[in-house]
């Protein structure tokens, strides 16, 4: 079973995304910030990362850059999920190394669809 790492400092958002993604048949790991996320990524086995941007400690962009700097995770698909909707935010996300940028609030079906698309799984 593939594993999705969900990184968000809001517990409600983590639980919401975790419930949606696990009901679509994926294992879910959660982390409360970028540093926690990096630890879990390095120690575990994840197939996709879903991350917020605005988190205390390590923000989402730093988190993504560190993932991309690590040789064993250069290719892992990363989806940003953020409240910020401006084009400049999206450009920053892609520049940092994300594959997709989704604006909150997330819709369950769309989220599952994006995750499957990024993982190459049938819709």
């Amino acid at each position: 079973m593939k594993t999705v790492l969900i990184v968000d400092d809001s517990r409600t958002t983590r639980n919401y995304h975790a419930a949606i993604i696990s009901s679509a048949g994926y294992q879910v790991l959660t982390a409360t910030d970028g540093a926690d996320g990096l630890e879990k990524l390095l120690m575990g086995s994840c197939d996709l990362v879903l991350t917020d941007i605005n988190m205390e400690g390590m923000d989402g962009y730093s988190f993504i850059r560190q993932i991309r700097a690590d040789s064993s995770h250069r290719e892992i698909p990363i989806i940003i999920v953020s409240t910020e909707s401006q084009t400049k935010d999206q450009s920053k996300g892609y520049a940092a190394g994300a594959n997709l940028y989704v604006v909150k609030p997330t819709q369950p079906d769309s989220l599952v669809s994006y995750v499957k698309m990024m993982l190459g799984d049938p819709q």
């Binding site: 970028g34 540093a35 926690d36 990096l38 630890e39 400690g57 390590m58």
Partner: peptide, 14 residues
């Protein structure tokens, strides 16, 4: 104890 919770200046490595 989590180093990264206290300071993000350190790099984490496996």
């Amino acid at each position: 104890e989590s180093v990264s919770r206290i300071s993000a200046a350190f790099k984490i490595r496996r």
